[in-house]
Design a protein around this nucleic acid. Sequence first.
DNA 1: GTGAAAGCGCTAACAA
DNA 2: TTGTTAGCGCTTTCAC
Lengths: 345, 345
Amino acid sequence: MASPPRRITIVDVAKHAQVSTTAVSKVLRNAYGASPAMREKVQQAIAELGYRPRAAARGMRGQTYTIGVMLPDIRNPFFPEILDGISERLRGTDYHVLLGPGGCDDEEAETEVTDAMIDRGMDGLILVAPVSPRARLEHIAGIVPTVVVGRHGHSARYDTVVDDDIAGAELVVNHLADLGHRRIAHIDHLETDPDRLAEMPNAIRSDGYRQAMRARGLVDEIDVVSTSYTQEGGYLGAQKLLARPVLPTAIFAGADIVAMGVLHALAEAGFSVPDDISVAGYDNTTFAALGLISLTSVDQAGRQIGSNAARLLLDRIADRQTPAAHVKLSPTLIARSTTAPPTVT
Amino acid sequence: MASPPRRITIVDVAKHAQVSTTAVSKVLRNAYGASPAMREKVQQAIAELGYRPRAAARGMRGQTYTIGVMLPDIRNPFFPEILDGISERLRGTDYHVLLGPGGCDDEEAETEVTDAMIDRGMDGLILVAPVSPRARLEHIAGIVPTVVVGRHGHSARYDTVVDDDIAGAELVVNHLADLGHRRIAHIDHLETDPDRLAEMPNAIRSDGYRQAMRARGLVDEIDVVSTSYTQEGGYLGAQKLLARPVLPTAIFAGADIVAMGVLHALAEAGFSVPDDISVAGYDNTTFAALGLISLTSVDQAGRQIGSNAARLLLDRIADRQTPAAHVKLSPTLIARSTTAPPTVT
DNA sequence: GTGAAAGCGCTAACAA
DNA sequence: TTGTTAGCGCTTTCAC
């Protein structure tokens, strides 16, 4: 195969349009100091030659027009929503998004990916639910404009966008309590690290559950089983709850995937949902919406999270001095067929 | 916030190690012409200063050590497997993976993403199930080493890695026929574009179904409903099949998501699975494995697809002259609880 | 085996 | 408004 013909450069465009390379550069960046006539000439030369600027070369002096998004777990069905929000907000700008796959719950992999993104001269970073310690996040933010998404806990060095997980848990408890439930149990993710207990959404949801139960006068009914945010976690959690002397009439799983395990355990044990026990999840993932499952769940404002993150990042790229902003968005409850009033016994 | 201290460069390392920048560069690239003693000195200086090379600057003359992976639909639960395979194969090399989110079935978005990756000086591209026309793929391959994944149809200009969808469909038909089924219906994705009819996996699976039915002497039982590879497609397809004068005893859905729609329609119509009708999917996605669903499905060799793609790409980057390779991998059947012998009536 | 020097494609500072 | 020039940080000749 013949080596591809040398790529068109800014010099070619300048020659073809009979102007200086500076002029071309200015047009490319929509920078000040180019007359409409010149703009026109340059645009035409660019089109005729099919010129495309090389991001690497631009990055040597200026920007790469690239936003890096770190996703810790590409399998999490909630993340595409965030990504859609980011893309939507960036549409029409000169920026492009590239994703860095971090390992699930893998701090080392996360460090590697974020370093790689910095090395590649990204103009800004959006870190989705990072597991790295705060210090590391602040270090990153010191190098490149950064927005942290889906992790509670403020910092003056980076912007954050989170969903109000307290409110989300409250939505579920109120929904169930309004239906008439009192014995509402909760399955959460066992967390021991103090940093993460304060900042990770799962821990906040758990807090929200307790607060909401108290607010509804159900302190004595608070019943939390700590397993993990997995299908097995839900399965095991449900089995533990089914072994209680008095059964709960509703189970609030901290995540949809947990709810799936719960539904499985209940079906296996011969319980009917929602007739015997109601079940609610969190995240409103694809499978919650599956007709066959139809799981009541909390919908996080994924798209808004994404578009807010992108907006904050663009602001920060434009002006690195702006004080850190912290946006909190409100989730909504999607009631489906797994929740109903408790059977009176 | 104070502007971050100037980043360490190769010059700093050279000074600190008392050698030339050329020497440092050679060590970085493991290139010929550096004595072990010099290597040692430079490595130490790099470690002491915490130096990290800038990919953009490297890309100006040499490589960026970046592999771009284009994913058309980040929601497709099959893609993470491929990605794992790629990452695994790349671990230990100097290459990093960045993902470009293409739009689902969106040729324009795909063009934009691939262009952006080329502009960013990626050393190689892996295109997963691209929807662009062949000519476009060959154009890309002419610019940068490219491996196309999950799309049948060869080209001399790029390597390909696919799963054997004919064999996969055959696995399903044989499984059902072995159980005693004869009236095995199939739901596929309506495809009209001739290029895609020849190259897209869904079309190949449909062919495979027909071939396998013929091979089992079930030509007269061939029954295909064309809707779309979505939950709704499965729902509608099943409704059409349930309207047949003689009902099928088994339904082979071309994708798990389609099977989910089928299961919903069957449950709604009061049919029990697998007692009344067996159902099989394709892709072995996360929800197929959910205990509550337990769907019989075909597992594509996702990890192997990924690792093969990465291997081919590295080979091609090392030597752009190697003739194009075309790898076809074999899927396996995962029998679960939605398939069983037909009830004798 | 080693290093000096040129240059990749672009932008920023400056001069005209 | 326009163009000239000097780099950005690295790799690549090509001397030694």
